[in-house]
Simulated scan of single mutants.
Amino acid sequence: MYQHILVPLDGSSNANEALKAAIDLAKDWHASLLLLHVTDINQFGGYARGLAYTEVIASMRENATELMTRAKELATAAGVTVTTANLEGAPKQQITDVANDAENGIDLIVIGKSGTNAFSRLVVGSTTTYVVQHAHPNVFVINDIAED
């Protein structure tokens, strides 16, 4: 059915559920996964760009690497072919750019319904909504599991 599945990850529980669903789909369809994390270094806007800024960005990059390593290990342990990409910029735009780039061959995006940045969703709308509206491949939106 689908051969190349894009899974955007941001460390949220909902993204983790999307990863689990994507792994199951990839196993069933013998598809490969492209796991994508976008570090939004622009979220600080015009704030001071001194040593503290540099340390925060370095920490964000380190967290992204750890997140992607764990996600790749999970998919690989399930027997799924996986590649990863860590990008920087606006998550909405980067996800749709990767999805729409013909060289990536993405034919399905599996994405969580909501992520980690509630403020961004309030001000500029959800990343998931943007991806659904602007990505060329089909988008499978995963709900987070309900807490007791």
Rank of each mutant, 00 (worst) to 15 (best):
N100F: 06
G50E: 00
L122N: 00
N16L: 03
A58G: 15
H30Q: 14
L87I: 07
K113H: 15
V110C: 05
T69E: 09
V56I: 13
L19V: 09
L33F: 11
L74S: 13
E66L: 06
T116P: 08
Q43A: 07
T81Y: 06
E55F: 09
G50A: 00
L33V: 10
N14F: 02
D40W: 03
M68I: 03
E62C: 09
V82I: 08
H37Y: 10
A102E: 03
F44K: 05
E62K: 15
I109Y: 08
A52T: 10
A21T: 04
L19N: 06
R70V: 02
D107L: 04
F44Y: 09
L67V: 10
N100M: 00
L87K: 12
F44L: 11
D40S: 04
S114E: 00
Q94K: 15
A22W: 01
N117Y: 07
T76I: 01
V124H: 05
N117I: 09
Q93L: 09
S12Q: 10
I23D: 00
T116K: 14
Q94T: 14
V124C: 02
T116E: 10
Q43G: 04
A75L: 05
N117F: 00
K27C: 13
A71M: 12
S120D: 12
A31W: 05
E66Y: 02
T76D: 14
K72S: 14
G45C: 01
K20Q: 06
I57N: 03
K20L: 04
T76Y: 09
H30M: 03
A90K: 13
A78M: 09
A118N: 09
T39D: 03
E55I: 04
L51R: 14
A22C: 03
A52N: 02
I57W: 00
D97S: 14
S12M: 05
T39R: 12
D40I: 02
P91R: 05
V123R: 10
Q94A: 15
T54W: 01
D107C: 04
M68R: 10
E73R: 06
Y53R: 09
N16Y: 02
Q93Y: 05
V123Q: 02
A99V: 07
G50V: 09
V82E: 02
K27Q: 13
R49N: 03
A21H: 08
E17D: 04
D107H: 08
R70L: 05
S114V: 09
P91L: 02
A85Q: 15
F119G: 09
V38H: 15
L67H: 06
S32P: 11
T81H: 11
M68V: 05
A90F: 03
Y47S: 14
T116F: 00
I106R: 08
S12L: 04
N104D: 15
A26P: 13
P91T: 06
A102T: 14
